[in-house]
Design a protein around this nucleic acid. Structure first.
Lengths: 209, 209
DNA sequence: AGAAAAACCTATCAATTGATAAAATCATAA
DNA sequence: TTATGATTTTATCAATTGATAGGTTTTTCT
């Protein structure tokens, strides 16, 4: 039947899958086309039969990366939509486990290795897959009075989403952590972004302003 | 007198100063030795008269970067040591303005472009210049009862410092911001990490556990 | 002034990079 | 079975990279 099609598609998909791991760990510049080819078990020029150039492969990687994240986050938020804290926790935990090993590196590559048209395109994908889903959580929280008044505190949905994402993508010098530690971290991040580090009396003091 | 010394030192310092801007903006791999030399107004081999190789220049850059930050943070903390919120705000604001344009890129380079000995060394510098000063703020806050019980909340000084630094080094897709916006951001980060995004009633609810 | 040393430049190297051309292999459909 | 087209390989390209050798200029010290 269409074995020919599927056969070709195997390599096609494998390239993106392999390149994804490499690009996300070492960054765009540090990963050569030969390295990708080796990890795929093919020769370097074969890459150019499936993709016109290195940049296209990277774009394909970003697309799959962001698409997977989008579907997962939407599913999680739909599942536990009524419980704000639980929802923040679940999202935090999922990203913490499944995010690219160096999100900062990813942003750097997007900004420095791509031309402006592609930057705009990726930024659009990024907003749909990360920003919008997380912001929707806070938006709902605001409507239900569970989140402080945005006008007073500056806690608008989108900036709030960026704050949570900042906490998640910290990992300054550390390596990948085991699952139960990630769960613990997710719990901490959730509590901090919702309730803060200050003891409750201090928190009240601020709220009177 | 020692004009010879000073003359040599001029170029010596200029290389580090110029390389600092380039490395921090574009990353280690994206900045070639020729690019550094051009920006200094010298030819590329001249670099190798002042420094044995590219990596040494990068290490020198990191050293100066971290040293400057350390002295600044210690000064700030000493100045406004009795007021927790103000102290957090001042530190946040300073880092926000003076930090390398892509801190994530810096961490990536440290982890991927340096050998293990140098990694350990830089990590030591990093802890002294960023982690320790900020952690000292939270340590004092805990002693004074202004920060939640670390044993219950997980808000130990060092992890707390990392949380604040995560917020500061967010800047996911944005460019450098003007001064008054940075001040606004610093204000928000300070309030969020201390008091959280949840409305006060929600915060109380959590505190009862 | 003149010797010594420091600073700098021209020319060049080997290695690696992304990318292309052309030949060889393989699977598919007639 | 055989012709066709997709897939992969070998061989190779020009450009860029970090780094070195050797000569030239500039500064310093006596």
């Amino acid at each position: 039947m269409n074995n020919r099609f599927e056969y070709g598609n195997k390599t096609h998909q494998k390239i993106v899958k392999v390149a994804r791991d490499l690009f996300m760990e070492f960054g765009y510049r540090a990963v050569s086309t030969r390295r990708i080819a080796d990890a795929c078990g093919i020769t370097q020029p074969t890459l150019y039969h499936h993709y016109p150039n290195k940049k296209t492969i990277y774009l394909e990687v970003l697309k799959s990366e962001l698409f997977d994240m989008q579907t997962a986050l939407k599913r999680i938020i739909k599942r536990c939509g009524d419980n704000l804290e639980e929802c923040v926790f679940q999202v935090t935990y999922y990203i913490l486990i499944n995010k690219p090993s160096s999100m900062g590196q990813m942003f750097h590559d997007i900004k420095n290795e791509l031309d402006e048209e592609h930057q705009k395109e990726i930024q659009q994908w990024w907003m749909e897959s990360y920003q919008a889903p997380i912001a929707s959580i806070f938006e709902k929280g605001i409507k239900e009075g569970k989140i402080r008044n945005p006008a007073e505190f500056g806690s608008y949905p989108v900036p709030s989403a960026y704050l949570l994402l900042s906490l998640i993508s910290s990992k300054h010098m550390e390596q990948q952590v085991p699952e139960h530690v990630a769960k613990e971290q997710a719990r901490l991040y959730t509590k901090v972004i919702l309730y803060g580090l200050a003891s409750s009396s201090e928190g009240q003091k601020n709220n009177e302003l």
